[in-house]
Structure formats: structure tokens, C-alpha cells
Nucleic acid binder design. Structure first.
Lengths: 215, 215, 215, 215
DNA sequence: GATGAATGAGTCTTCATTCAT
DNA sequence: AATGAATGAAGACTCATTCAT
């Protein structure tokens, strides 16, 4: 007996769903502001709610629990990362050394842009997430692994096309590259670098890396 | 009229102090075992005590509180690190490219040995410490900075002696190197690498790095 | 766009506030019952909660902590006392010896009524409050001082209007009067005197006092 | 087979007993210093021991437990008080109004001397003892009662000898007098009065009291 | 959907007291 | 008699989560 909902009902539903999404986004934002300020463990649901002017109970209409928020952000982040590594930035896209170098810089810039859009994201990712619970730690480690796999793909492309040293220990080098990204991210957070400083830092690191791996 | 304590008293004191040191070491050990298993926040003083077969109250005869333990370990670690960077491993010790390469491998090996002596130390350092409290985070960040300063010193030595590229962006490269160490540590923990595998990894990363920075 | 809350919301809010006030009163009541039975220090939050049939955590929705309750009661008491010393009982109200005597009896009766309304209040105030913490001790001492100041005002009025001995050491006598009130309160509590007995006690003490100070 | 101890043993024992008494006195002293500073509940056995430079375990060689100390002092105080109310200060000693007045002043002075010898005694008695446990409260109340009984005896003597008003409500007045002593003690502690100020205060209060009760 | 009071499990920490040395 | 480490009971307080309204 469940008939098709009338169009007006549909519209109302859509609107409601949209409002819910906005609220969810607001909550994530407030949560991250608090997490970044005082750390995940020291932040209470009440802190988040108060910042938004909602009741603590309302929180649970939008998220299953406190750590669910971090999961959502991890999802977002993962999506942005994968999106940044498509098309001209895909592992097999670079066809010669020059393109390879340009690609490396583009990717470094894209990662920087993602982190710079909300510095609280890397902050929490790097400094809090692993302490929340084993599953979340596993997810972060997975990110590390994914980074490693991408690194392997890029290096393999370079070796196969012949502009990287053929004797490269590819997995080891991939990890080293992930580490460099990590270090640059930490330095950026830590020293609160301006965009131009971050660019210089990026270029220097990419240059050293390329020199280290090029044939 | 409080005279000098009798020699027997002295001896008893020394023995007691020694036992206390042993207990302290045991507690650190038990604490780290628990922290590594279930995470710092999820570990209770009771967990640590139970593992040792002591009462939870006894814990407080040796440490001010839970985080005091992490502080102690950070002290130890800092000491070991600094000790490893002395003498032939000191920044200005390498006099030519060959010595430089050998030194890099030695240092990498020494760091690996420190971390391998108790893998829970890097685990907690990397994955928990920053979430405990702001001061502890500051201390870890300080470690990162110290690593950076040492990196700068090594690179400067190489540039000055002429076997590193003169156009190197030294601080950026120092950070990159710190990142590589980080990545190797994470990979070692994560994949539970055997000593020989770790050696291979180390050698590969050092080789790439040297190639990246050598003149 | 946050508009005025709808009237129904207002009403609900008022009701909630009222319920909260009732709960707060209930908690104070339960707390004082326990304090009077077993003493402040020996009373646990759990004792108070159990007596009310609420969970111990709920206590903290209404009071910051255990001592906060004593503070609230001190506030109440101070208010009642000050209210009792208004109008015809104000220091400058009595205009001749007869009025003065009547006033003294009225005030003694009012103080008795306040303490008799809840005998646990003087009990805790006299026997516990000073042992709770320095600030609370300070507050109780302040009460003692206030009593002294009022005493001074009453005596000054009597001396100025000429029906008290002009050579009175006013502050000393004010303290003596405060002490008598104290003693009567202690005796009442201690011997569990009935209302008529307390009245007799009061009258005797006031008579002796007046005889002691009248010209 | 337990023979008489040799004389030297006896002497050693006596000396030991004396040392033990000294230690006991030292502990009481240290305990009271701490109690007066931070209150009974906030003082730990460790605090007392540290102040004396002994170990916390040693405390238990001299006292059964923490509250035992307060008991000892209460005993001391009671003894001093009773001693002060002997001979010329005994209830029936005063034979005329003049002697009565002199006696009242002597007693007030004696009480002041006892309290002034160690101000921590009244402080703890008045502000802490009743909060320790029911038995101790009972003992303090007993002191209050004893004071009352003495008051009754003094007043009865005066009435019988005919220099006090025959219509005096003796028990009520006795309580009032106890209250005055209390108030003077509190004021002395609170305002840290000098000896001469305390004397003036005493004299004023005694004068008012006498005027209040004399025929 | 919103609210916020109620819950109660969970933990750190303190400290009087004991006892082996 | 002195020591001080060990004990373990005890309690205040927090907070994620639930649920009646």
C-alpha cells in the first residue's frame, strides 16, 4: 500500500535532506575546530554542540558517535586525494622526464592545496587519529599504504619508460617519497608557512627527489 | 647531632635505590606493552599494574601519573639519539664523499637499532604521544626540530667540503631526510620487517638520498 | 533569522527551569540529611544520590561539586538572616528601652525560627563548614563578622539614644552577644530543646544581656 | 622465669620511655602545625612525618592512628582546663561580690593563657574537631557541657551567697557565659589580637556579664 | 528533528595503614 | 625502633550516549 509520494512531498524531502547535509557539514566543521584546538580526546560532544548552538543530543541525529566524525573526514580526504591523482596526474600519464617532473610538482601542489584548504585535517590526521582506536589507526595506515602503492606506480612508470634509474628499489623509494610528503606537511603545519614558502619548500624537495631517482 | 650514616645504612640505601630503579624500568616496560597493545588512552593504570602483579596504588610510588611515563621514555630516547650522533657520526666528522656515505649508513643503522630495541617506543612516539597533551606534543615536535637541525648540520658539512651540490636548499632537504627516516620507521613497524629487510630498505633509501644530494 | 521563541517553547522552558529548581532543592535537602547524619566528609555523592533515587552522575547536572551545596545553603542562610534584620528589626528602629527589649526578643525569635526550620543548617554550619576548605571557612568567619557589625549597630543605636550604658565597649559587647546566640544555638541543637524550652532559654539570655548593657 | 630486671636495664628503659614521650610530643606538635595550616582532613600522615624528618611508618609507633592525636590533645586541654578551675578559682571559692568579680577575671585570663600558649589548639578544637568523626564531636560537645556545668556551679554559688540576682535562669545564663568565652576565643584567633587587646576585650565582656547577673 | 536531563560505567588518584627488612 | 614500599579501598568527577517530551 506504499504508494508513490506526491511531488510536493518529494520536494520537501529533498530540501530536508539538503538541510541535513548542511548540518552534517556544520558539525564536522565545528568538531574539527574543537579537535584542532584541544585534541580529540579532550573534546566533548558538548563542546562541539555548544560551538554550533545546538544541543548535545542533536549531534546523534547526524552522527553515530564521536569517532564517526573522523571517519567521515577520512572518507572526504581519501576522495580528494584520489581525485587529485587522476587524468594528467595519473601514474601512467607522464611520458618523458620533463612531463614527469612537471607531474611531480603538480601533485605536490595538489596535496598542499588539499591540506591548506583545512589545516585541521592534516593536524588531526597526523596527530590524533592514530590514538583514537585501532580501526582508525588501521585506516590511517591504509592511507600510508595507498600512498605507497601510488608511489610504486609512478616509479614503475618512470623506470619502464626509461627515464628513471633502472636499479631503483621501487617500494623503498616509494616509502621515502611518502615520508618526504609527510615531513613537508608537518613542517608546513608546524612553522605555519605561507603559500610562497611552501612552494619553495615543495620545489626544493621535488628537485632533490628527482635528482635522486632520475637516470 | 645527626652524624654520618653508617656504611651499612649506605649500602641498604644504595640497594633500595637500585631496586627502585628496577621497578621503574619494569613499570615503563609494562606500560609500554599495554600502550602498544591497546593505545595510551585505552590503557588504565590498573592494566599496567595487573601486568606487573602489583597494586595500582604502587604505580604512584614510582611515577607521578600516567603521562609521566611517556616523559621518561622521551628522555631516554632523546639521550640515545644524541649519543648515536657523536664521534664518527658527528655532523662534521665526514671528510669526503665516501666517508659521508658510510656515515649516513651508520646513522641509519643506529636509528634502526634504537627503534628495534623496543619497537613500542616508536609506535607510541609516532602514534600516541601527540594526542596525550599539548606539552607532550610540543616535546615530540621538538624532536622533529632537533632532527631538522642535525640534518642541516650534516648537509652544511657536505656542501662546505664540496661533495654535496652547492645549490641545495638545505633546510628543505633536511626536512625531507627526516621524513624519509620517519617513513622507514613506519614501514618497519607496519610491515614488521626483519633485520635484513630493514637493512635493504635503509640502503636503498640512503642510496637514493645520496644520489639526490651529491654533487 | 532566529526569531523570538514561540510561547509554547517559553512555557516549556519555564516548566523545565522550575523542575530544575525543585531538583536542586531536593538535592540540597538530601545532602543535608546525609551531612547531618554522617558528617560532610563521610558523605559521598553516591549517598546523596541514593537517598534521592537518582544516579550519582545526575548530581553534577545541578551542582558543580560537593562543596557547592554548602555554598548554596550559606547563600540562602545569609539572605534569610539579612531579611530578618529589616524594618522593625533594623538596627536604628528601636526608639526607647522598651522597644529595644522587644526588638531583641523578636530578633532572637527570628534567628531561632530560621535555625529551627532546618536544624541541619546550623549543625553543618557550626560543626562542618570550617573543615571543608579555606574559602568556606572564610565565608563562615565573614558571617561571624557580619553578626559583629550588626551587633555594633544595635549597640550604637542604644547608646546614642541614651538607653544603654554610655561606657559600653561596643565591639567587645557585640562579640559577646554573637557568642550568646552561638551558645543558644548549640544548646538547642545539642539538647534537642522543644519550642517552649527554647523560648524560655531565649528570654532568660536576652534578659541577662539587657540587664548587662542597659543604663 | 622472668626475673627482676637489673638496675641498668631499668635506667635504660626509663630513658627510652622518656625519649618516646619526647617523640610523642614532637609528633603532636608537628601534627598541630600541619592541622592548623591546612586542616585536619587535608593533612596527611606523610606531611606530619616530613615536617619531623621521620618516616610515615614511624608515626604508628607512637600513635594508633591519625585521629588519636586529636584525642591526646583533647585530653591535655581538658586537664589544663580543670587545673585552672581549682583552688581560688573553684566554683565555691568566691565569698563576696568583689571576690567573685576578681575570680571571673582570673578565670578569663587563665583560659586565655591556655589558648594563647598554642593557638592551634583552639583553632583545631573549634574548627576541625567536630568534623572528624562522631565520637570526637561528642567529646567536644562534652567539653561544652562541662563548661556549662561549671557555669552552673559558679552561678549557683553566687546566688546562694546572695550577690547574684536570685531570679537568674541559671542553666541558660551558664550557656550564655560559655558562648561569650567562645566568642572571645574566636575573635582573638580571627583578629590575631595582642595580649593587651585581649585583656581589654576580656575585661569589657566580664564587666557586661557581671552587670547582667549581679543583684 | 530538537532538546537536555538522566544515566552509570569508567578511571585516576589519594592515603591511612601494614609489614618485611 | 625506623624505614618506606606495598597495599587496596574509596570516591570524586567526567562524558558518551539514550530517551522521554
Amino acid at each position: 500500500m506504499t504508494s508513490e509520494p506526491a511531488p510536493t512531498v518529494r520536494r520537501a524531502e529533498r530540501k530536508r535532506a539538503q538541510q541535513a547535509d548542511e548540518m552534517r557539514a556544520d558539525i564536522i566543521d565545528a568538531a574539527f575546530a574543537e579537535f584542532a584546538e584541544r585534541g580529540y580526546h579532550a573534546t566533548t560532544i558538548g563542546d562541539i554542540a555548544k560551538r554550533l548552538g545546538i544541543s548535545s543530543g542533536s549531534f546523534y541525529n547526524y552522527f553515530k558517535n564521536k569517532r564517526d566524525i573522523v571517519d567521515h573526514v577520512l572518507d572526504m580526504l581519501m576522495g580528494q586525494m584520489l581525485a587529485a591523482l587522476q587524468a594528467e596526474n595519473a601514474p601512467e600519464a607522464a611520458q618523458d622526464a620533463e612531463q614527469y617532473a612537471a607531474q611531480a610538482l603538480r601533485i605536490a601542489g595538489a596535496v598542499d592545496a588539499i591540506f591548506d584548504a583545512d589545516r585541521r585535517v592534516p593536524q588531526i590526521l597526523l596527530f590524533e587519529a592514530t590514538s583514537i582506536d585501532p580501526e582508525l589507526t588501521a585506516r590511517v595506515m591504509e592511507l600510508f599504504d595507498i600512498a605507497g602503492h601510488f608511489g610504486v606506480a609512478y616509479l614503475t612508470n618512470g623506470v619502464e619508460r626509461g627515464f628513471l634509474r633502472p636499479d631503483l628499489n621501487i617500494p623503498a623509494t616509494a616509502d621515502a617519497i611518502t615520508g618526504m610528503i609527510l615531513a613537508v606537511a608537518i613542517r608546513s603545519l608546524r612553522s605555519n608557512l605561507a603559500a610562497t614558502e611552501r612552494r619553495t619548500l615543495r620545489e626544493a624537495v621535488v628537485a632533490t627527489m628527482l635528482q635522486g631517482i632520475m637516470r
